[in-house]
Amino acid sequence: MGNYVKFRSLLFAVALVFVFSACSQKSEKVKEFDKPALYWYNKMIKEISTGYLEDADDTYISLESEHRNSPLLSTALLVLANAHIDEEEYELANFYLDEYIKRYALSKNIDYVRYLKIKANFQGFAYDLRDQQLIEDTIAQIEEFRKSFPRSPYTPLVNTMSARLYMAKANLDKEIADLYSRLDKPEAAKYYNEKVKKSWVNPKEIEPVEVPFYRYPFERNLF
């Protein structure tokens, strides 16, 4: 009986330690406000480096809310954008890039931010045969980039993505033209074949999109 009482007392003591520890952590978390900008920034960097990207997003909100004019905000936006690109979370990356452009449109490195937006879109093509609008939008962004930043060091990278996007666009138009040919609609097929010629100099150079075997029946049924 004595051992049983001791065992229950030990369990009770352990439970109390757990409860107080949890309450302490919760209290500490609740008290996290009204901190210097550098505190929030360093906390965000640590969370990104340890893989807690969602926590880093929340920490940025605290930084932005408490220090709207901090010079650390611009760097924080770029760090988060790059982190989300690395994690293939392109919509969130674009959110931070758009926020940067809205706040710092006259920044000296705005060409880098515009390049990152093009890169995020380029890497974000989930299905090469379906993202027609995204292809069109990104090509338009590339043309705007070339006009706005003709001497940017990122131009060669943008040009490389441009060539691949035009090939993807030509490939898509060629697939649509082939579909209309199979459906015995020569006028529509001719229209898209003309688009192919405008998209790419030599249609014979167009490389077909490689479709994974598990998507092949669905993609080819579309075209």
Rank of each mutant, 00 (worst) to 15 (best):
A76P: 11
A76I: 10
A76W: 11
L78R: 00
V79H: 02
L80C: 11
L80P: 14
L80N: 12
L80G: 04
A81K: 01
N82S: 12
N82H: 07
N82P: 10
A83E: 01
A83N: 10
A83Q: 06
H84D: 14
I85F: 03
I85M: 15
I85G: 14
I85L: 07
I85C: 05
D86R: 10
E87T: 08
E87C: 08
E87A: 14
E88P: 15
E88G: 15
E89V: 09
E89Q: 10
Y90N: 15
Y90T: 14
Y90R: 08
E91T: 12
E91W: 09
L92C: 05
A93Y: 02
A93C: 15
A93Q: 11
N94G: 06
N94L: 11
Y96K: 10
Y96C: 04
Y96A: 05
L97N: 07
D98G: 14
D98M: 01
D98H: 03
D98T: 02
Y100F: 14
Y100I: 01
Y100P: 04
I101P: 03
K102H: 07
K102C: 02
K102Q: 13
R103T: 12
R103D: 09
R103F: 07
Y104V: 01
A105F: 11
A105I: 15
L106Y: 04
S107Q: 02
K108F: 10
K108I: 08
K108G: 14
N109Q: 13
I110N: 00
I110S: 03
D111R: 03
D111T: 06
D111S: 13
Y112W: 04
V113E: 02
V113A: 05
V113D: 00
R114N: 06
R114E: 15
Y115H: 09
L116E: 12
L116C: 05
L116Y: 02
L116G: 02
L116K: 11
K117E: 06
K117L: 07
K117P: 02
I118L: 04
K119Y: 05
A120P: 11
F125N: 00
F125E: 08
A126G: 14
Y127W: 08
Y127G: 06
Y127N: 13
D128H: 06
D128W: 06
D128F: 09
L129Q: 03
L129W: 12
L129S: 13
D131S: 10
D131F: 09
Q133P: 05
Q133T: 15
Q133Y: 09
L134P: 04
L134N: 09
L134C: 00
I135G: 08
E136T: 14
E136I: 13
E136D: 00
D137E: 07
D137M: 00
D137W: 00
D137T: 11
D137C: 01
I139F: 01
I139L: 15
A140E: 12
A140H: 05
A140K: 09
Q141M: 11
I142E: 10
I142Y: 04
E143M: 07
E143Q: 06
E143N: 08
E144P: 09
K147S: 13
S148N: 13
F149P: 15
P150A: 06
P150I: 10
R151F: 11
R151C: 05
R151H: 08
S152F: 05
S152V: 02
S152C: 05
P153Y: 01
P153A: 01
P153N: 04
Y154H: 10
